[in-house]
Computed example of a mutant assay.
Amino acid sequence: MESQFWIEKRCGSIENVTIEDVDAANQEAIFSDDVKSSFWIGHNDQEFVLRISSSLDFAFIYGKN
């Protein structure tokens, strides 16, 4: 079964993500030496993205901008 979500992070992107991929990206951001580290999770068919930072702050982005 394919997931409808993708992840973008500083070392590349992942298509058809699983919960394990999200957990790994989260752990990578938290334990990064870069205090501004973050990753993005988006939906393939919808225009929304969730940006999660290393401090676990998040922003919901909707639309093309």
Rank of each mutant, 00 (worst) to 15 (best):
M1D: 12
E2S: 15
E2Y: 07
E2H: 15
S3T: 02
Q4D: 11
Q4H: 03
F5C: 05
F5P: 00
W6M: 08
W6N: 04
W6V: 05
I7W: 04
E8T: 10
E8W: 06
R10Y: 11
R10I: 12
R10N: 11
R10M: 10
C11F: 07
C11P: 05
C11L: 04
G12N: 10
G12S: 02
S13N: 08
S13P: 08
I14P: 11
E15Q: 03
N16M: 02
N16V: 05
V17W: 09
T18P: 14
I19L: 12
E20V: 15
E20N: 12
E20C: 10
E20T: 15
D21L: 03
V22R: 07
V22F: 05
D23W: 15
A24Q: 04
A24P: 09
A24H: 10
A25D: 06
N26H: 09
N26Q: 06
N26S: 09
N26L: 13
E28L: 08
A29I: 07
I30W: 14
I30R: 08
I30S: 13
F31M: 02
F31L: 12
D33E: 15
D33G: 15
D34P: 06
D34Y: 10
V35H: 07
V35F: 04
V35S: 12
K36G: 12
S37I: 05
S37C: 10
S37M: 12
S38M: 11
S38K: 06
F39M: 01
W40S: 06
W40E: 04
I41F: 06
G42P: 11
G42S: 07
G42H: 14
H43N: 01
H43Y: 04
N44R: 13
D45H: 09
D45A: 05
Q46M: 01
Q46N: 02
Q46V: 03
E47A: 04
F48D: 01
F48M: 04
V49W: 01
V49E: 06
V49K: 00
V49A: 00
V49N: 00
L50N: 05
L50Y: 05
L50P: 11
L50F: 12
R51S: 13
I52Q: 02
I52V: 15
I52S: 10
S53Y: 08
S54R: 14
S54P: 11
S54T: 04
S55F: 01
S55Q: 02
S55N: 06
L56V: 02
L56A: 02
L56C: 02
D57S: 04
D57L: 07
A59I: 05
A59Y: 08
F60Q: 14
F60C: 08
I61M: 06
I61Y: 00
I61P: 06
G63W: 11
G63C: 02
K64Y: 12
N65D: 09
N65S: 09
